[in-house]
Computed example of a mutant assay.
Amino acid sequence: MPSLSWLQKYRPQKLPFRRHVTRASVALIYRGPRSRDGELFFIQRARRDGDPWSGDMAFPGGRLERSDTSSRHTAMRETLEETGLDLFRQGEYQARLSDLLTRHHSRWSPMVVTPHVFAWQGDHRVSLNHEAQQGIWIPLDYLSNPAHRSTLQIRTPVGKMTFPCCRYQGYCIWGLSYSMLQEFLRKRGAG
């Protein structure tokens, strides 16, 4: 069983107004025998017209629904729907990471995203739905190596912007996913 005991002591930043805006939640899914070497699971979002994050690398997740009992439940439900990975039965909950502020997909209103970390104890089978075009496990030693960090330029209505990213076999992890990844790696290194 993976040991992520260093996460048990972590106290994430929680945005005080999170209950008053649209909320979403994602799952950082870890597999491996030890916390020092293992892999994290990412999806490549399906390419869709009008989706500003079409084709981007991400952690599985989505918006909270009224039927969800918590943001953790949302991450688990959305992961099952998008990937077939059943965190209810084959995931061991580890910890919550800090809330992140972003915007709602279809409008400029604020949205808070809460990441949750799980240790995966199931098999390697993935069953993607229409929201994901690829599922991939990426080694933590690769993700934590500074040599694989880069930048990504994006055209925006206000001009070109440059963002930090991590590149892996033609994939590019940037934006919120990159921020969550960096928080996870910082805490892993300090643990």
Rank of each mutant, 00 (worst) to 15 (best):
Gln153Asn: 12
Phe42Ser: 01
Glu78Trp: 10
Tyr142Arg: 09
Arg96Ser: 15
Ala119Gln: 06
Gly159Asn: 09
Met111Arg: 09
Ser98Thr: 14
Ala147Arg: 14
Arg96Trp: 14
Arg96Tyr: 10
Met57Leu: 10
Asp123His: 15
Arg125Gly: 08
Ala58Asn: 07
Gln133Ile: 02
Asp123Trp: 08
Glu39Gln: 14
Thr79Asp: 01
Glu131Pro: 01
Thr114Gln: 15
Pro139Trp: 10
Gln94Ala: 15
Asp68Phe: 02
Val112Arg: 00
Trp120Gly: 08
Thr79Lys: 05
Pro139Cys: 12
Tyr142Glu: 04
Ile136Thr: 15
Leu128Thr: 14
Ile154Phe: 06
Glu131Phe: 12
Phe163His: 15
Ala119Ile: 02
Leu128Ser: 08
Arg149Trp: 05
Ser127Pro: 04
Ile154Pro: 05
Arg48Glu: 12
Ser109Glu: 14
Ala58Leu: 07
Phe118Gly: 06
Ser70Asp: 01
Pro139Ile: 10
His124Lys: 10
Ser70Glu: 01
Met76Ser: 11
Glu131Cys: 13
Pro110Cys: 01
Gln94Lys: 15
Asp68Arg: 06
Val126Gly: 00
Ala75His: 05
Arg72Leu: 08
Arg96Thr: 15
His116Asn: 07
Gly50Lys: 01
Arg77Val: 13
Ser150Lys: 07
Thr156Asn: 02
Gly50Asn: 00
Gly61Thr: 03
His105Ser: 13
Trp120Phe: 08
Glu82Arg: 10
Thr74Pro: 00
Arg66Lys: 07
Leu80Arg: 11
Pro139Gln: 13
Phe42Cys: 01
Gln90Thr: 13
Phe88Pro: 01
Ser98Arg: 06
Asp99Glu: 15
Gln44Thr: 15
Thr74Val: 06
Glu81Met: 09
Thr162Asp: 08
Phe41Cys: 03
Gln134Trp: 13
Leu40Tyr: 03
Lys160Phe: 10
Ser106Cys: 06
Pro52Ile: 04
Leu152Cys: 05
Leu80Thr: 00
Glu78Leu: 08
Ile43Tyr: 05
Val158Thr: 12
Gln44Ile: 15
Glu39Leu: 02
Met111Val: 09
Pro110Asp: 07
Asp123Tyr: 09
Val117Gly: 04
Ser67Ala: 12
Leu97Ser: 04
Tyr93Arg: 11
Phe118Pro: 04
Glu78Met: 13
Leu40Cys: 00
Ala58Thr: 06
Ile138His: 05
Met76Ile: 11
Pro115Cys: 07
Glu82Ala: 08
Val126Ser: 09
Leu128Asp: 10
Lys160Asn: 09
Asn129Ser: 12
His130Glu: 13
